[in-house]
Amino acid sequence: MPISRSAVATKPVIVNDKVVDSVTIISGKVLVEAPSMALGSIFQRQAHSLGIVHANVIVAQ
C-alpha cells in the first residue's frame, strides 16, 4: 500500500534569519507602497484627462 504524502514526515529546513528578515521587509514594503502607487496612477490619469479637456476647449474657441 503506497504511503500518502501527508503521512511522510518532512525534514525541517534551516533558513538563515537574515533571509527571513529581508523577505519580511520586502513584503511589508510592497504592502505599504501599494496604496500610494495606486493614487499616483489615478492622479496621473486625472492630470492627463484634464490636459486633453483644456486642449479641446482651446481648439473649440
Results as ranks from 00 to 15, higher is better:
1 M>C: 05
2 P>A: 10
2 P>S: 08
3 I>Y: 04
3 I>L: 15
3 I>K: 13
4 S>M: 01
7 A>E: 15
8 V>Y: 04
8 V>L: 15
8 V>F: 08
8 V>H: 01
10 T>K: 11
10 T>F: 08
10 T>C: 05
11 K>S: 09
11 K>R: 11
11 K>F: 02
12 P>G: 02
12 P>K: 07
12 P>C: 00
14 I>L: 10
14 I>T: 11
14 I>G: 02
14 I>P: 00
15 V>G: 00
16 N>D: 15
16 N>Q: 06
17 D>K: 03
19 V>T: 13
20 V>D: 04
21 D>L: 11
21 D>G: 02
21 D>P: 00
22 S>D: 12
23 V>M: 14
23 V>R: 08
23 V>W: 07
24 T>G: 04
25 I>H: 06
25 I>Q: 15
26 I>W: 06
28 G>I: 01
28 G>N: 15
30 V>D: 04
31 L>T: 08
31 L>F: 07
32 V>K: 14
33 E>S: 12
34 A>E: 12
35 P>L: 05
36 S>W: 08
36 S>N: 09
37 M>N: 09
37 M>C: 03
40 G>N: 13
40 G>V: 01
42 I>T: 08
42 I>P: 00
44 Q>N: 09
46 Q>W: 07
46 Q>V: 15
48 H>P: 00
48 H>S: 13
49 S>N: 11
49 S>E: 14
49 S>L: 13
49 S>Y: 08
49 S>A: 15
53 V>L: 14
54 H>W: 09
54 H>K: 12
55 A>Q: 11
57 V>A: 14
57 V>R: 09
58 I>F: 07
60 A>N: 13
60 A>D: 12
60 A>I: 05
61 Q>D: 11
